[in-house]
Amino acid sequence: MASTDFSLPLGPALRADLDAEARRSNQPATEIAEAAIAQYLAGRKRKREAVRQALREADDGVFISEESVARWVQSWGTESELPPPDPDVLPTR
């Protein structure tokens, strides 16, 4: 993939951390920065898609009740941990 130059001002502490990581991992700082930006942007994209999906489900009237979520959360860390709940509030059309 072709690359283009991009200049980005970094604060001294962030720059020092980036340089230290580059030395530890024996990678160029630019390679680490590029991977970090790609990972950040991918996470933002996943978040936007999750919000879009939730809005579609809300528009359709499909929800998970507070009671189901509470039961699920209360089971965390127990021997009988529950799987994530399925939607249980559905449209009455």
Rank of each mutant, 00 (worst) to 15 (best):
A42N: 10
Q39D: 15
R52P: 08
V62Q: 01
L41D: 09
V62C: 00
G61R: 02
R44I: 10
E57C: 12
G61M: 04
A35D: 09
Y40S: 10
A42Y: 08
R46Q: 07
V51R: 08
E49L: 07
A36Q: 12
G43S: 05
E34W: 06
Y40F: 14
I37K: 13
A54E: 05
L41E: 03
I64V: 09
R46T: 04
L41H: 09
R48K: 06
V62P: 03
K45Y: 05
A42H: 06
I64D: 00
V51I: 11
F63H: 02
Y40P: 01
A58W: 11
G43K: 04
V51L: 11
I64N: 00
R48T: 07
A36V: 11
E49N: 10
R46G: 06
V62M: 04
A42T: 12
I37S: 13
Q53D: 15
L41K: 07
A58V: 03
R44C: 11
G61P: 02
A58N: 08
K45I: 02
L41W: 04
S65P: 01
D60E: 04
R48E: 01
I64C: 00
L41G: 04
K45F: 05
D59S: 09
A58M: 12
A54M: 09
A42I: 09
Y40N: 15
Y40Q: 08
E57Y: 15
E57Q: 14
A42W: 07
Q53H: 11
